[in-house]
């Protein structure tokens, strides 16, 4: 990387909410949707993408310090909200990168208007019931254990969050968890209708999975690939659920080459 990307943070008025948006880079618009445990503001993965794309990283409303939309009840509501965001920003064609829980949001968005997406990248995406195994239930795990379970290599977790995450971080994880419960308590972290709607998606899709994803079973990735009309699977080796934090440059290369701007 030549120099760190120049990120600009704005608060976007959207459907009565104040949405926190970080944006950097230029080129094709790329909307990056973060995990269920929120996201740090700056990550090497975001910086790497900003070298090639106009990268938009919103903070999901209700996650972290942003205002909670008390009315929101489903991940589909979030998908609609991000469609409103793209419309309001005048972005007519965007590509989506959905990370874990964010992958569910991205998949929902893709089902809504089949022709306006450049490409769809789903990384360890939640949102459909794995044919084999279950999505790891954070309700039964401590914040730290759940976040750690997303990494193949504990040293990578520690590089991002520290060996002992701060209490502020724990509070943020608790806030995120509360919002996850508000949106996806039951059935836990999947939609029963999404797999059927995925058949109508027109955008090409890249489904990325860490080979050691202990949060969302790989079988869910296979099901995404079979449900989406134009999808292929890429496996990242020695990697857990948080591919973006564990193998940021490898994932950025996959995204870049998939979207044809390498």
């Amino acid at each position: 990387m030549a120099s760190p990307a120049a990120w600009k943070e704005t608060l976007v008025d959207l459907a009565g909410l104040k949405l926190r948006l970080n944006r950097a880079g230029s080129g094709q618009a790329l909307l990056v949707l973060h995990h269920d445990i929120g996201s740090l503001d700056r990550l090497p993965f975001y910086d790497a993408l900003a070298e090639r794309f106009d990268v938009l990283v919103p903070q999901h409303p209700g996650y972290g310090q942003s205002e909670r939309p008390v009315w929101m009840r489903s991940v589909r509501d979030l998908a609609v909200l991000y469609r409103l965001l793209l419309g309001q920003l005048g972005i007519e064609r965007a590509s989506l990168v959905g990370l874990g829980f964010g992958g569910w949001i991205a998949a929902e968005m893709a089902t809504m208007a089949p022709r306006d997406l450049g490409g769809l990248v789903l990384v360890g995406a939640m949102g459909i019931k794995p044919p084999d195994g279950d999505i790891l239930d954070q309700a039964l795990l401590s914040y730290i254990d759940y976040a750690r379970a997303g990494f193949h290599d504990p040293r990578r977790f520690e590089a991002v969050y520290g060996a002992e995450p701060s209490t502020d971080q724990l509070v943020e994880w608790d806030i995120c968890r509360e919002m996850n419960f508000r949106l996806a308590w039951k059935p836990y972290m999947y939609s029963q209708t999404l797999p059927h709607l995925l058949r109508g998606v027109g955008a090409p899709a890249l489904v990325v999975w860490g080979d050691d994803d202990r949060i969302v079973p790989r079988s869910a990735g296979d099901r995404y690939v079979s449900a989406l009309p134009q999808a292929r699977l890429a496996i990242v080796e020695s990697c857990g659920h948080h591919v973006d934090m564990e193998k940021p440059l490898e994932l950025a290369r996959l995204v870049t080459s998939f979207l044809g701007v390498a």
């Binding site: 401590s142 914040y143 724990l170 509070v171 608790d174 806030i175 968890r177 509360e178 419960f181 508000r182």
Partner: peptide, 16 residues
């Protein structure tokens, strides 16, 4: 998460 008062959030995450 979400069960107890927001004002007790910090105390409970430290306990947990």
């Amino acid at each position: 998460s979400g069960y107890s008062s927001p004002e007790n959030r910090r105390g409970f995450v430290e306990f947990s």
